[in-house]
Structures are given as C-alpha cells and as structure tokens.
Amino acid sequence: MSESKSSAAPRAAVGSVSKGRKTSMERRSFFSWLAVGWIAFVGVTGGFFTVIIRFLFPNVLFEPPQSFKIGYPEDFAPNSVDIRYKKEFNAWIVRDDESIFALSTVCTHLGCTPNWLATDNKFKCPCHGSGFRMTGIHFEGPAPRPLERFKIGIADDGQILVDKTKSYKWEKGEWENKDSSLKV
C-alpha cells in the first residue's frame, strides 16, 4: 500500500508545481492573463452593446417633421374637415364658424384612427365605435375624452403652422388656450 502510494505520486494533482514544466503558470502571470482576458471581455461586450444601442438611433429617420405649414386660412372652407394631412401628419384640419384647429387622428379610447364621415358629420372609430363631433368632442362609444388638438398659429409668411409637439386636452381645460385654435 505504501509503495503504490509513493509510486503513484500525484503527477497531475492540483496545486503541484513541477519545476521543469513550461506550461505551469506563475501567480504573477496568471493575474496579467486575467487582466488581458477581462479587458478583452469588457471590450467585446462593450462593443456589442454599443453597436446595439447605436442601432436604435438610425442615420436617417423617415418621419415627417413635427411642425408643418398647411397653407393660408382662406384655403379652408367654413364648416369643413380637411383630411389631406391625415396620412402624413396624423392631423385633421377643421374649420368651424369661428376658428381653425388641428385635431389629432388618434382615438382617445385605444388609439385606432377614426374615419371622417362627411354625411353623418362625425368622426367614427372602426375599432370600438367611438364617435366624435366635428369639434372633436366625444359623444358615442367608449372614448372617454375628446380628440386632442395640436398647437396652431400663423407663421411669418402668413401660412398656418401646426406644431404637433404641443397638444391641448379638452378635459384639462386646455382648449381655452389661444394656441389651440386659430380665430378667423
């Protein structure tokens, strides 16, 4: 027993240091390799996430500008809804007896795009049947609040300028704001 124990010396046992071997690693060099490995790891993951985050910010954004000119007040007939800007800018331009305003085309119930039904004189949402009057006030279906209005004003050249970065909510009394509609 004792013989075999000594002859079967732990050749590859953990922690043994065999002097002549080149593969063995000094404590010092282990730390430097660890540093190299760690830097490589950080570099790769960092680069990876940098690329991913960069991907979220495309070079070209095919989005229409948030504020846009829609022509002169005379271009809009009284008591009419202009649906020309619906597709590109998600806004209806409405002119009633006394003012022009820009309504958001997002239904205040669940965000579908309602249709303007000229014969029925209302906006009607095809998803859950919410109905809005020409002014944007909700009156049927589940929508709990009126359509939002965008900031509207006159630009330097006399054209109407709609700014979608600012919207006005009726339920907060913001339609009283002079920028929410354009008196004509």
Binding site: I83, K87, C112, T113, N115, P126, C127, H128
Partner: peptide, 20 residues
C-alpha cells in the same frame, strides 16, 4: 398598413373578439 385608411370595421383576431 396605411394610417390614412383604417379597415372598417377593424377586427381583432377571432379569439380576441370577445375582448374587443
């Protein structure tokens, strides 16, 4: 999809119609 022309009526998948 065309934001200017929502299908009318716009229906959810059949299994969600109860929810709708």
């Amino acid at each position: 999809a065309n934001p200017a022309a929502t299908p009318n009526p716009s229906k959810a998948p059949w299994y969600f119609l109860g929810l709708q």
